[in-house]
């Protein structure tokens, strides 16, 4: 039986690496990512499942890290926005200026990446349905939707052996 009691060291599979973290059974994945592993891309917002600022991928699917216990994430592949560096999804958000203050952006990036991986042929309504999991208080969502569509389009083109015109490289 798998068990986490008191403070205990566990191994998490994050962004392709095995990472050690000392956790309590009651720690959320969000808290462990931010305070134990220094991955502060996933943001605490409502911590109630409503805003999506904390979204990460777990086994390729977007999940709200504020709702998941770290124990629940054992044996699963976790990806945070830090793992999206220099990807097509990141470039699409830059090219469309799909952010203002940026607080919500990592969450939207993870949703876009989840959509790209799982439903790259999603039709317009399905794209909008996916964006409903996250809240942005600054933009009017149009730029975010445009970025998501671009990220999906490049995936569809890739599937057909084609590429979009080269995008500006992303500063590190």
């Amino acid at each position: 039986m798998m068990e986490i009691r008191n403070r205990q060291e566990i191994l998490l599979h994050v962004n392709g690496d095995r990472r050690r973290a000392t956790v309590r059974g009651s720690d959320t994945l969000l808290q462990v990512l931010r305070t134990e592993l220094g991955l502060t891309g996933a943001k605490p917002g409502c911590e109630n499942g409503d805003c999506g600022a904390c979204t990460v991928l777990v086994d390729d699917w977007p999940v709200k890290a504020c709702l998941m216990l770290a124990g629940d994430a054992l044996d699963r592949r976790i990806e945070t926005v830090e793992g999206l560096h220099n990807t097509g999804t990141q470039r699409a958000f830059l090219e469309h200026f799909a952010f203002q203050c940026g607080y919500c952006t990592s969450g939207f990036l993870m949703v876009a990446e989840g959509l790209r991986r799982n439903r790259s042929a999603a039709h317009d309504l399905e794209q909008i349905e996916w964006l409903r999991s996250n809240i942005c208080r600054c933009t009017g969502y149009a730029e975010i939707l445009a970025a998501v569509r671009d990220a999906l389009r490049s995936e569809v083109l890739k599937g057909a052996g084609l590429t979009l015109a080269p995008a500006a490289s992303v500063p590190s």
Partner: peptide
């Protein structure tokens, strides 16, 4: 953050 501490257990059966 959850203030209380509790154990997480995952039995198989």
């Amino acid at each position: 953050m959850i203030a209380v501490d509790f154990a997480y257990r995952r039995p198989d059966t």
